[in-house]
Every structure is written in structure tokens, then in C-alpha cells.
Amino acid sequence: MQPLTNRSKLVVQKEMTFMERIYLPAILKGMAITLSHFFKKKNTVQYPEVQRPIAPVYRGKHVLKRDEQGRERCTACGLCAVACPAEAITMVAAERTKGEENLYREEKYAAVYEINQLRCIFCGLCEEACPKEAIFLTDVITPVETTRKEFVYGKDKLVEPLNQRIDVSKRQSWRMPEQQS
């Protein structure tokens, strides 16, 4: 049979020689190997001070984007919830009333929008499904909480704050060709 790699080794069970049976040479060899590692460069990244660069398409905490005029883009169509394989997203839709045009872009909006971060697998399918470019995954890592309840993120944690806009252009540019076609 053709070997798949050239690394395969034939297993032979032969009698050990005297040198092998006294073990000491093998032990010393092993100890030499570990000692050589003693002086090697350490691989550890000192996390809070040093952070590893993350990929431009990293999928972290979600954000509900606003448009250029600061209006929420989400129209509560529910496609993200349908797309979600972990069933982490729930929402309650409401109709926009008069005078709220500066708050919501569409006539229907999400009154309640919740993502359970414990269920979420950060696959990004919600982002793919969204027809309004409202939900994006950012490079922010979900922080640690002490209770399960706190992991259910409501709109207060998800909607992009007006005074500090979150840049998702990297993810948009990654999506652009698909959108155009």
C-alpha cells in the first residue's frame, strides 16, 4: 500500500539491548532534552499587558449599528434569530410611532433585543442573515460576569452608543463583494 506520508514507521518488537535495558542512557537523553528547553525562549504572552494581534475578521461581542444619522438600523425582522444555530437571539418587535423617526430608521423596530452570550457560538451567521446591516460582530471579547443573568445582553449593552461609534468597516468590506453580486 502506498504510504500517505513519508513519516510512517514500521513497528518492530525486538529484544532490548543491554544499553537500552539499563535505561540510564535514555533517561539522561530525555533530561538533556528538557534541559535544552530550560534555556529556550518562552512562548508565553503576558496577557493584560501584551495582547496578541487578532485577525481582522475576528468575531467577538455583537453590536447593533446605528446609521449615519444615529438611527437604529434594526427592523426586527427576526432573520438573525432564525439563522442563529445556537438559538441565542430573541426579540420583540414594535411599531414606530410619530416623532420617533430620529430614533429608528425603519417603521418597525426591536423593542427588546436579547442575545444570550452563554449560548452564542460567535459563528457570525446573524451578521450574514441581516438584510439591514444592523448587527455586526466586533473584536471586543465578551467580559466575565458573575451570574448567568448578566450574560443575557439586552439593547443597553448591544446598541452602539452615539458618542462612541464602533468601526465595523473591516467586516463590511469583507462582506461587500457578496452584497454587490
Binding site: T34, L35, H37, F38, K40, K41, K42, N43, T44
Partner: peptide, 10 residues
Amino acid sequence: KIAAFLQDRQ
């Protein structure tokens, strides 16, 4: 410390 150094850790 020694365990870490022998295993390329800090």
C-alpha cells in the same frame, strides 16, 4: 518555576 522553564513557560 522550573516546571515552567522546562516546558517553555514563564
